[in-house]
Amino acid sequence: MSQIGKQTAVVVAPGRGTYNKPELGYFTRHHGARSALLAEIDAYRRNAGQTPVSELDRAERFSGSRHTRGDNASPLIYACAYADFLSIDRDQFDIIGVTGNSMGWYVALACAGALDAMGGLQVVNTMGRLMQEQMIGGQLIYPFVDEGWQQIPGRRDEILSLMAEIDGRSGCELALSIELGGMLVLAGNEAGLTAFEKRLPRRQGRFPMRLPNHAAFHTALQEPVASLGRAALERGLFTQPALPLIDGRGGLWRPGSSDLAALYDYTLGHQVVRTYDFTAAIRTAARELMPDVFILLGPGTTLGGAVAQSLILSGWRGWGSKADFTARQQGRPRLLSMGLPEQRALAAR
């Protein structure tokens, strides 16, 4: 039960693609005082023969080829997001649950206490490295809502029907990777992705959008990565979560009663090779935990739209469109993005 005067909050951890040029220096700007955490992360990276996170964050300029690589982006995002979690003002917010998108599931595990800080880094760093080394397939994103975040009749079914048709072609592989609010992330091999891009019209000036340095996450193509991950990471890393966790199926893992073997198996099995339903995760958080607010960890702000769209699809607080969401944010915001300075000021100590 929340203490009097506090708002209840579900924390949402971001995935890959959230540390871009505007985020360069994010950890240094916001978490210089957490140098001990960064020093420990850097030591781990140096021991593994990898570039320290501090060097990446403090680089003179952003490099897409360097900063968006899975083996660099994953620990960089983890450090920023986990430090953001530690900086949430607990006098103002009672955190009642944690979830995340894609790689954000690993961050959520650490925030909820199912992994300790360095255990979380180990999982993030290992899986980011393995996916970069294997680099199997790619991803693209396509919306089924209009610019007002309302569903376009028939659009979602059209996308999924085309996806299935292409996947059935010889030499093509294409599958649903992430349910991301009003967008679908598809993943597959080059033939499958190219075939999709050729068939559907360009929308909103940027879709279908390829996601750079992204493999075919959350599809059967990642079976080799899942197998290597299980070989590299021990079950003993996982402990009972201290906070409720919501996974990429919308499943709820509760403190004191979570099956740790099942949590390990999900994290390095189903979560890697099957669709990640972020929309379902947000729906479960909204309906089962009923928070006053959602707090989106940084770096970046790109996941904010997907969270809001997922809440609209869930019918949360009567929201039915982007206009409803925008109007509500003008008063006492229900979604606080720590990547936005004005909202960070409301969430952080």
Rank of each mutant, 00 (worst) to 15 (best):
G248Y: 05
A285P: 09
G269V: 06
T239C: 10
I88L: 13
I77R: 02
N189R: 08
I96H: 09
Q122M: 06
G256P: 07
P224Q: 11
G138I: 07
V98E: 11
T28F: 02
A323W: 02
M163W: 02
R235P: 02
Q7P: 00
G256T: 13
G250M: 01
V273I: 15
R203M: 15
L130T: 15
F196K: 01
L340E: 14
V98Q: 06
D157L: 07
H218K: 05
G339A: 01
L296D: 08
D71I: 14
N72A: 09
L160Y: 12
D324E: 04
A187F: 05
E197N: 01
A308P: 00
M338D: 06
G70M: 09
V124L: 03
V10D: 08
S54T: 14
F294E: 13
L200I: 15
A43Y: 00
R45Q: 15
T18C: 15
S177Q: 10
T126E: 11
L313R: 07
R169P: 02
R206I: 11
A220V: 10
A261L: 03
M131P: 00
R206L: 09
R328H: 10
T68F: 00
A226R: 07
H214Y: 04
G188M: 05
G304H: 01
S310C: 07
A231F: 00
L303V: 11
R254H: 06
S161W: 01
E234D: 15
V307E: 02
A187T: 09
A79P: 04
E173P: 00
A36D: 15
E23R: 01
N20C: 03
R287G: 14
A262Q: 14
L211W: 03
K322E: 14
A114M: 11
V272F: 00
R349P: 01
M118Q: 14
G298R: 11
P299C: 10
I141N: 12
G188L: 06
S321P: 03
L56I: 13
A226V: 08
L140S: 07
M135S: 15
V10E: 09
V307R: 05
F196S: 07
L56S: 08
Q271H: 15
P153D: 15
T219G: 09
G298K: 04
G119C: 13
A9V: 08
